[in-house]
Amino acid sequence: MATSSVKPRIKLDKKEAKQGDIVEVKALVSHVMETGQRKSADGNVIPRKILNKFTCTVNGKEVFSADFEPAVSANPYIQFKFKATESGPVVLTWIDDDGSKIVGEDSIKVI
């Protein structure tokens, strides 16, 4: 499905790393994370709509992923680490309940 125009904000604690260094990634993305447990003013349940899956790849290889439930806060924040082994793009992908994707990218250089 479509890739959303929402631009996640990503922070790496280093742009260059030595072989085997641990790199910390922080990311924030705008999303309502509607729980499916709330009712609107007219009494109808507001349907669930959350980002349910997050994946990070470095140079095409997955280093971390997560499944989110409705208990994850609006505008989800995620912070994790990976081990630097090769240079390349750091790609972060969130998947919405509706199948759409939010994608953000940074990069790491291994020296």
Binding site: I22, V58, K61, E62, V63, F64, A66, F68, A71, V72, S73, P76, Y77, I78, Q79, F80, K81, F82, K83, T85
Partner: peptide
């Protein structure tokens, strides 16, 4: 490949 088993989010 994670290097460290550590994650942080907000709930």
């Amino acid at each position: 490949a994670s290097g460290v088993a550590e994650a942080n989010t907000r709930i």
